[in-house]
Structures are given as C-alpha cells and as structure tokens.
Nucleic acid binder design. Sequence first.
DNA 1: ATCGCTAACCAAAGCGCTTTGAAAACGAGT
DNA 2: ACTCGTTTTCAAAGCGCTTTGGTTAGCGAT
Lengths: 343, 343
Amino acid sequence: MNLKQLSEILDLSQTTVSRALNGYPEVSEDTRLRVQAAADKHGYRPNSRAKGLATGKSMVIGHVIPSSSQHEMVNPIFGDFVAGAAKKYAECGYDMMFTNAEDTSIEQAYRNLFQRGAVDGVVLQGPKVNEPRIEVLNRMAVPFIVHGRSTGVNVPYDWIDVNNKSSFMRATRFLIDLGHRRIALINGLEDMDFAQRRRDGFLEAMRQAELPPDPKLMRSAEMTEVYGHHETRDMLQLDNPPTAILTSSMISAIGVRRALEEIGLEMGRDVSVIAHDDDLSYLKNGQDVPIFTATRSSVRQAGELAAEMLIDRIKSPNDPIKTRLLEAELVVGRSTGPVPNRF
Amino acid sequence: MNLKQLSEILDLSQTTVSRALNGYPEVSEDTRLRVQAAADKHGYRPNSRAKGLATGKSMVIGHVIPSSSQHEMVNPIFGDFVAGAAKKYAECGYDMMFTNAEDTSIEQAYRNLFQRGAVDGVVLQGPKVNEPRIEVLNRMAVPFIVHGRSTGVNVPYDWIDVNNKSSFMRATRFLIDLGHRRIALINGLEDMDFAQRRRDGFLEAMRQAELPPDPKLMRSAEMTEVYGHHETRDMLQLDNPPTAILTSSMISAIGVRRALEEIGLEMGRDVSVIAHDDDLSYLKNGQDVPIFTATRSSVRQAGELAAEMLIDRIKSPNDPIKTRLLEAELVVGRSTGPVPNRF
DNA sequence: ATCGCTAACCAAAGCGCTTTGAAAACGAGT
DNA sequence: ACTCGTTTTCAAAGCGCTTTGGTTAGCGAT
C-alpha cells in the first residue's frame, strides 16, 4: 500500500493525502479524518526511503562500532548506552543504525555514512586522547555528539561526559582518609581519554596528600575480569603490596575480588577496593548495601542524554556548542575500610 | 556530489556512469576506469535512499530491542551477538538498524519496519515459548531468522540455536557422575525458550539417574549477578542444601561464587558449580584452566552465523528452511569436584 | 454582476538513483 | 557502398514521497 493507491481509494490527490497525514493546515477536518481512517484501515506507512529522498532527511542516527580484528573486545557498557539512546530515538521518531568498521577505517565509515545520506547525525563513542575522528566530523560539518571528551582536540564539539577526574580524585581521597598509603590503580587502556582523566584524578589526589605514586601500582589494559584478577595477584606479590585498589570497571573489580579471595584476603578488611560502576542493568552493585564502594554513573542515562543532545543539534545546527558534565556519586559499600593495623 | 554532477564532469550519461560503477558488462574498460577514477577523486558515494528506492532493496537488516519500561534489563549477550552479526553484515554490504519497542508492541515494530521498507530482513532475538512474533513474521512472508527456537510454534522458520537441552543434560550428568545428588538449577526466566530447554535437559538427566528433582532447588529469574547470589544464599540455608549448582549464565555464576565465599565455602570443593558460558569478550572464563566448569558456546559466533543465514534467505527467499544447531562444549574448570565426604 | 479573499484541493516537478528500450558507433562481411 | 551484428552510449521513465505553484469553489462586500 503506497500513497498513490491510498489516494486513489480515497479519490483524492496524493498531495492532499500526504498533507492530511502530516498535519498540514490546508486540509479540511473532514477529509483529514477520512484519510486518517483509511490509512489506519489499510495499514499504510509511508516508505521511509522515499520520504527521506524527498525531504533530504533520513531520520536515522548512526553509531559506528569499531570491531578491530586484533582485540575482539566488545565494550560491555555498549548495550546499556545503546538502550538508553534507543529509547530517546524512538520517542523522537528516529531509527538507529550501526556500522561495523575496522579500527583503521573508522573515519571512512563516518564519511561514508553521511555521503550516502544514510544518517542525519552520529554518536562518537569511546574517544581516545587526541581523537582524530572529532576533527574529521568537525570538518565535515555534520551533527555529532561525543560520549566522552578528547584531551588535545581543540576544535569545539558537543559532548557529554562523566567527570572522571573528580570522581577518581574523590575516591582516592576517600581511601587516603581511611589511612591508605599504598593505593593501586587498575585502569583501562590509557590511550582512552576517560582512562587518562581517571589517572589524572588519582595522581592529583595523591599529590595533594603528598604521597608519591608508585608506578608498580599503576596498571592499564582492557577492563576484563581476567585482567583485574591477574594484576591484583601480581601486585599482591610485591614486597610492598597495596592496601587499597582503585579499578576502572565493575567487571575487573570482580576479578580483583576473586584474586583477593584466592589469596585468603578479605575485601574491605585486608584490602579496600573502589570500582567505577556504570550501573549496568545486569550487573547491579548489590541490593541494599553495595558490594563495592563505587563511583557510580549510569551509562544508560548518559545514552539517553546523548541522544537528546544530538537530536537537538540536528534540529538546530547553528545553536552554540552544548556540553554536559555528569558528576558520579561516590556510594560507600562493603569493600572499603580503614587500613589494617599491621601497616 | 551526486550521479548527475559526476556524469556531467565526465561528459557521460548517468546511465553509463551508474553501470560503470556497478560493474555491468556493457561499458568499455576505458570508460569504466575513467569513471572509477573520477568517482574516487570526488569521493562519490551513491545515495543509499535513492538507490534503495530505485532497487526496492534497502540493504539494511533490522534488530528490535524490546526495552520494556518494567524490567530494564539489557541482555548482556546483546553486545557480543551484535558484534558478530555486524561483522558479517559489513562484509556483505548491509547496514544494521535497531529499533526500540515496548514489550507490548514488538509485533507492530516489525510490521512497521517492513512496511516502511526500512529493512530487507530482521533478526528475532530471545524467543519465548510460543513466541507470537514468529507467526507474525511468517504471515508477513518476510525474511527473518530466529536466534533460538520456540517450543509450541509449528510454522516453519529459519533458526540457529545452541543445543541447550543436550548441554544441560551433559552438565547435569557430569555432576551426577561426580556423586552429586542434590543439584540446584539457577535458570533464566522460564518463559524464555532457552531456559525451558535447559530445564528439560536438567530434568531429563535427573530422571535417567532416577533422582527426584527438588522444586526448592529450581530457581528462575533474570540472570543478574545479584540474583545468582541471592538464590544461592537462600538455598544454602535449606535443611538439605545442594552440593552442586547449575547456572544459566556466567554473570549469575559470579554471584553464586560470591555467596559461597561469604559463607566460607570453597567452590569446587564444598560446592560444585557449572555455568553456561556465552564466551563474552569481556568475561572470559579464566586463562589456562577455566575458573568455572562450563557449557560453552560463543554467542558472537552465533551472531555471525545468524547474519549469514539471514543474508542467504534474503538472496534466496524460496530456498528450503535452514536450521542450525550448535553443540556447546563442556569445558572442565576448577569449580567442580566430587561430592564432599560428609554427604 | 463583479471583485477579492479564503478555504480546499490538485497537477506536476523534483529528490538521486536504476533500468528499459532505443540509438549511435564501429568493424566485418558481402 | 551497404547491410548486419556487436559494442558502447544515451534519453527517459519510474521508484514513493514532499512541495511548489497553481486552480477551483464558495461567500460576503461592493
């Protein structure tokens, strides 16, 4: 069922039917109702490609997922972020398109997406330090939003981010206040911007407390459970092991916990642990009292807000740049406590 | 840059340029090269909406994510499945579209997707028992593939699934062979087809060993970490607690482990645990020796295969129905052992 | 009766591509 | 020189929608 057929059934012109359906004023209320009823009855839905061709808008927003052949990691926060964004998209009549691109050709992928007219805007996820994609999108003058920021990129761009630095500063200070001096940081890959900011926050708090950071206690890799486990075991074998561990994700915190228990140490008593908690739907941090003391910020909500900001940008391309910095909350759970006496 | 402009630059007709670019034979090799070069030089990419309109194909495959307002869970396997599928889509020139729909209106969402001409096929994820969506798609006579199967649905359809029943049978038998008699099943929501099959496998193995299943030891809910923890604590407080636990996901297995350790029980010695492992990229089950004994089947691979099968279906709508049953492997890790003597 | 104005509707162009059916261009065969 | 079969190119129609620039009908004011 297409417009032509529908208009023939109604004995009206395509123009009138189209206008009736899209709520233009120059249609009598009678005919509008009649058209609406017929459209419902026949289950008419305008072909989105034709509509897109005619209007120049695709009503689609693109996400590029960089799935390189080397490290096959899918970011676990992906699902929740997308779910948040998708909700907002649906409300505003947008669809969501994913493209897979090799790590090396992500810029190509964005360019492709726009030049083909496949999307009206894109979300840039997981920006690195000096993220080249931002400048590319900026030059292309297309609507986009960055989930995160990129140190070293000086062009203006819309972004939404968690205040990684301040939350890791607070977490570190919290540990210092509990008497900890040997504090370890199990961080994400440090070419990722968020990881660098977290490290900065950690280092800043240490500096303020006049504690020299120990390079041996600072680790950085992709945040899997196994990684958290491995680094923890490794650090606890040092002559001077950490009494507290700060970790960049709940997933690796679980590995940290496993390592502690294997060695026979109790989390919260022998070793304190603070994790960053993205508030993933399938990985809630305990029920009443959180298992982990954590810096918490819902990535799902971030997705929703990002979507909203992007849609605003698409609607008003010339509005001033918008940015949004979310503060993570520090929730205190059972994984932290004062430094044990023997130290 | 569009076809018209490009053809004017080349002083050729749109027809010829289009044909040159799409590899039709009736174009001389000279002009083909000339056209190709110009297209590259000007970064010409055919507008996909126009192309879609003209060809009647959208080169897009749709996924509907049911994000109901009630239970906000995003399936954690979502990311890996999608990554697998996306890879295959990209290879074959397809894009991937997501639509968010309320639990109540998923059928509407599929119908909408096709009638708008937005997609050439869809993937149906997470089928329930008696899944109504399958019959809907069947009636619509559109290409689709089901990740999983649906007991009670008798129309033919393409599917790819893990042999849930046999893998849970094997796992249960493995525990029985180790001497376990009190075996608990921490399952997913049992209106989900996969969960029902897993329970069937479990019950079948129990029946074959002439062990009466204890309803108190069979739990069912959404597979979060907290859920695994909660049910384990609960069951271990029974007069006659289980000596082994079978769980439907690694995430809840982590909760099981946490509960055991809180109580002071050692996994593999005091209580055996087997988990189903979807082989998620961020949740690898240990490095050399797996942490959990597990029934393992890569959901990412399933995504890739599903995509392939769907694309085949789109290309040959009249081929006979294709189905694919993947066998999970039973990998033995450190979480299982003989039943303790005291029993 | 004429004019002007508004309300309601319409024919046709155009979005950027593919594809059909036809027309040049070019050798080879007579 | 003329025809015939290929090869190569093209003009124009069509995909399903929106939108421009009308036209027509109806009504009160002149």
